[in-house]
Design a protein around this nucleic acid. Structure first.
Lengths: 187, 187
DNA sequence: CCTACCGATCGGTAGG
DNA sequence: CCTACCGATCGGTAGG
């Protein structure tokens, strides 16, 4: 038994039932140990959540940061960031479900660490939008902040409705989303 | 003590800490009763959640249905629906937080009732999009389904970031969102 | 609406 | 990694 296998089982269980509802006995059943034996490998339940959340967000930072720093136009970078987001999402769907919604169950110290990571994620999209408006590539929206929050909210919502077995691949979904964000719905 | 006052306290507590983490003792403290005395007024904890969720979604149906059925163009109705959504959101922010995210804690029977309501909400936006494409008022998006899910996801995300004390009113946020959805970001 | 309490389950630990 | 168990807390109830 490795801490990694316990973490994988925890990702599965937390994503299905949420952190407070998953008991250490559910987790020990899932990996084939008795409840007390889990503590040979981990310190406490909350440490599992902390690691799952931090690594889960880090995947997005690693994928999106290079896109934002590239020398493409703002519309191209936004399209690229949306594509990167959807590819990470498809590759770590359950972990994302835990990372984006369940960090709120962490104690204040752990929560602060997560908030910092979330701010970095947020800042990536902010940068594209701000630079695009500055360069005249995007129109002067009435609120850049709300625009960023809306785009991120839209992307995060895919966590709930994207299906790896659905009709569209992650890349195809990204294309629909990017088209919508860039050119809108009106004919 | 009325069941309504208990329900209000439950909305507040569930929205702050989520259903499984709120104990009946938290709730009884909030309304000034002893834990056992709550059961004079309610049957069980889950009934509270069920009612909060159903009424919470119903507010959205009541506000958006007339907009969808009106005889405006699809772009006008989409703008109206987004506006209606944001006004309900601002008027019942905490209840919305419970209704949109915590219905998953209900037992299967209750969950089925909620899924029906959610489908009706979903169908309202689907109808506008489908009719708008049909009428040539919207461009032929690559996936109407993903488009609808993205718009709803964006609106639902406002539940997490909208602040009644923020710079923009709900109506102003709705305008930014509708502009974005209808005409996109590109200059 | 309170007193007093129920059985079940929780995260976690001592000792081997 | 198991045995055996801890104190705390959970939703809920009987009887007044």
């Amino acid at each position: 038994m490795s801490p990694e296998r316990i973490e994988e089982a925890a990702i599965q269980l937390f994503s299905e039932k949420t952190y407070p509802v998953v008991g250490m006995r559910d987790l020990s059943d899932a990996v084939g140990l008795l409840p007390g034996s889990l503590y040979v490998h981990i310190n406490k339940k909350e440490d599992l959540l902390q690691r799952i959340v931090e690594k889960g967000i880090q995947r997005y930072l690693d994928a999106i940061e290079p896109v934002v720093e590239s020398d493409q136009t703002a519309p191209e970078r936004l399209r690229g960031a949306i594509n990167a987001h959807m590819r990470v999402l498809a590759g770590s769907l359950q972990q994302t479900r835990v990372a984006f919604h369940q960090w709120t169950y962490l104690a204040p110290t752990g929560k602060r660490r997560v908030v910092k990571l979330r701010r970095r994620y947020d800042a990536l999209f902010s940068q594209i939008i701000d630079e695009g408006i500055e360069a005249g590539e995007f129109r002067a929206v009435k609120s850049a902040r709300v625009t960023v929050l809306a785009i991120i909210g839209m992307l995060n919502s895919a966590t709930e409705w994207f299906s790896p077995t659905g009709e569209l691949t992650a890349e195809q979904v990204a294309e629909v989303l990017a088209d919508g964000v860039l050119t809108g719905l009106v004919a």
